[in-house]
Amino acid sequence: MIQLYDYILSAECYKVRLLCALLGVKFQPIKVNVHPGGDHLKPEFALINPRRTIPVLQDGAHRICDTNTILIHIARRHDPSEQWLPRDENMFDDTLGWLGFAAKELDLLQSLRMNSITAAGSASRTEMEQAHAALTIVEDHLAEGELERRHWLVGKSPTIADIAVFPPTILAPDGGVPLERYPALWRWFDRVKKLHGFIVMPGIFPNLSGVV
């Protein structure tokens, strides 16, 4: 069974857990004391991942130390329909483009969130503006998609692009970044939550309709 070095409050790890849940892939979590222990920063963890980050995926002898690469790996190995990582050339490029966006432009949202949770500090004005600029890019893209009846980041079905962008954006309020000005994002969150097999993490409210 594949193993995942995991922390319950890491939105990066949640991306992997979410994709596994949606594809029905089982994994064994290896829990890392990120807070307050900082175990991922210690020399012993550098032997597992020299970048000292989580998640890390161990699939047999193969080890992957990067969230986007893990998502690609799981989609290629466990999604024969090729929906989550489309084979179509343009859609493939667009999907990878969003993975890059999630890793780069949305990284600030992730760090603001962890700083806020661990009481390490709050967002500066500049950081707040950068966070909103990144969210506006997603909002504009989703709003344009809706005008063309495209309800996902890439094309008409969810892909790993959605999996990479959903956690940092929906969890923005955890880091003090409000989401009221992003109505198209809000509608997309609702669509993601209604996917068959969807799971939550702390900070994401479940879809209560019909289950209560």
Binding site: F205, L208, S209, G210, V212
Partner: peptide, 16 residues
């Protein structure tokens, strides 16, 4: 707004 619409009702996410 963090709750959910169910049929003709709105559910609060805190205590339901």
């Amino acid at each position: 707004s963090f709750g959910a619409v169910h049929q003709e009702t709105l559910i609060c996410p805190y205590h339901g």
